[in-house]
Design a protein around this nucleic acid. Structure first.
Lengths: 220, 220, 220, 220
DNA sequence: GATGAATGAGAATTCATTCAT
DNA sequence: CATGAATGAATTCTCATTCAT
């Protein structure tokens, strides 16, 4: 369920130096475990549990990520990165502009982009250059999708990338403790509803100005 | 900002016995503080902090609510209750069926219905009769709103109450740590987008079956 | 062995409010235990051990002293304070000026003034106003003793208060792990040697300038 | 500042077998780093830090010294050894008996003999034959210095070698965390004061019996 | 022989919950 | 009743020591 197209471009941050094969494996496993558990139990899971799930001692986790902030940083980076990859993939795979956007939206849900929301609570530097850059890349990719859909007259035009990303994120936020296996069904259902809404002509003037991701980032 | 129409009908659960005026006051203040802080910091805030904000000693909190579960229960009850009140209020206030639904949706956001999501994580009995009953009352009220809007041909018909409530909840989930004062603006913006989507004719077949609130409740 | 003249003036910092008799007792006991154990095992003893020796749960310790720094602060304050009391007591008790100084020096050893040295390593704010004030009080008291001895022609005159206090502190530093019961004997022996040296006429020009306590305090 | 006369005689413990040139270099560097860091941060510095400062991997440290005790042992040995060398050097270099003692005392400070005190806390075998022997050598050397000074009538006669060594050690104990660059100035100042006191005729009967180093060693 | 990585045991600190005034 | 204080059970993080390359 997890290893869909294990990211294309986002290998960027794999450090050049390749000191040890198994060490890298461990690092990967920790990040993966963390990503899963952040989704499943929220971003406050005991790090010892993460280590256990990753199959390493807790100290190994701490060697790789000096504190929770560092791990969170890495997970946020990974999710953002994989989501961006999905956006680019969608753009390439679908010729129809709105189909591309749709494909991306559903794919982003699978990448659990919504898991980022509860992480923004803090505990790590949201403005770290590495994150900033990745976020920018994501926004550009989605910007492309949105613009194409608009140009093709397939989508209402009073909406900004940030609106899409924020709504998308909220709608796909994990519900820790809800084990209901069909939860994904619902999520995709609501996303589809959201997408349908985007295609409809504007019925009302949306309140507020078009939201960008920066608006949220600036929080606090 | 908090005391809009301090609930009408939902006084039901005020225990019949009226032991002391100030005792009741305390209880009220604790629930209010908890509701606010659950929204602001998530459902894991230290209970001592809640007590402090309520202006009572921690032991007083524990006298009223033996454990965190009991307090969570009460807050969930209160939010549900107030939201139901808002639904009934909306039905009464607006003659136009879809306007009524819209009014309710935006009002529910103000009641922070989204704050319920992170509470479902567990730690309290989601199937407590009292909650069940209140949830039913909410569903009935919203059911009414939805049905009227559908009957008037103002809204696509492949949607269930649960869909509305879940999407609505997700879209209004608080973002603890995000102090951005305009966050509410965005929320209402996205809700409006959602409402616009509801009004549009069905563009696609929504995946999955119509969700009810029970689907979520059954989680775990 | 500990309760020699349980301090005269230094009750100053017993907070005015007297919220609970036993709570105060606990606080006292924690500080006492900490003072003893800092002397016996150095300033890095596990706080849980301190709590155990004080006969309270660890959390009680943390309630009174949010972190190690706070406890260290209190102990430093207490030792300084008690030492000052000893200085004033010595001045009052002995008519002979040098006898007064001698009495103070040996008394300071009993107060374990030397235990302050390893605490200066850091981990707490050495320049906290409360400490500054108390240190000043100590210096003034000792200044008085020294000046009187000098005026009476009983002591070489190229020495500053700080010299006395620093040498005194070093000579009385505890030797954690050394359980030798006669260790105090040795200490007093060396102090006496030091005192004898003070009385002798200057034989050599002492290198460096007269040290003040501030010189040490300023250490980064 | 560190490499004054990099030890003369005390090469004794360089193991006869000469397995590798660089291996020996490493061992040397580790001991040096440890000596410096014990002085600067106390005897509890993380061994990984010592390894880093020595420029080797931590495992190399552990190959040479199976545990902290072994490293401490070696450092104690080294300091004792170097100090003894200084004593013998002083005896040879100065014709005046008291000048020789003085020279030794100030030289011992430079060798950081005081750093031994906090190491006695334990964690290694203080009675290891190798240490015992080296300590005896030190005592004999200093004994010589003291006896000559006494015979020449240059020094009060109620003092034992142990008194000198203990007072000297205490007065030169490092103050970890005190970065004050003039700290050495003060130290030498107080040592001079101490030396002046030794030259003066006995003013008082020193309490306790003449201390020997064994008295301290026997501690615990 | 040397190294970086892994590990478990331990220490500081927090928090839900219980107790004594 | 109401309160501040006490407590033990987590949780985060560190470090001495061992292991795999």
């Amino acid at each position: 369920m997890e290893t869909v197209a294990e990211a294309a471009t986002c290998e960027a941050h794999r450090r050049a130096s390749r000191p040890r094969a198994d060490a890298l494996r461990n690092r990967e496993r920790i990040v993966t475990a963390a990503r899963e558990m952040f989704v499943e139990f929220g971003p406050d899971v005991p790090l010892d549990e993460v280590a256990r799930r990753a199959g390493v001692g807790n100290a190994t986790l701490y060697r790789n990520f000096p504190d929770r902030a560092a791990l969170t940083h890495e997970v946020v980076l990974a999710v953002t990165c994989r989501t961006t990859d999905r956006a680019e993939e969608a753009a390439a795979a679908e010729s129809d502009p709105f189909a591309a956007l749709s494909r991306f939206v559903h794919a982003a849900a699978e990448e659990r982009i919504g898991a980022l929301c509860p992480m923004l609570s803090g505990g790590f530097d949201k403005d770290h250059p590495e994150l900033l850059a990745e976020r920018r890349r994501l926004e550009e990719a989605v910007e492309g999708l949105v613009r194409r859909a608009m140009s093709a007259g397939r989508m209402r035009t009073d909406i900004a990338v940030g609106d899409v990303l924020v709504a998308l994120s909220q709608l796909t936020r994990p519900l820790p403790g809800i084990a209901c296996p069909d939860i994904d069904r619902f999520t995709h259902r609501h996303l589809q509803l959201f997408l349908d809404g985007l295609q409809a002509p504007a019925r009302s003037e949306l309140p507020g100005s078009a939201a960008t991701l920066e608006d949220l980032r600036r929080g606090h």
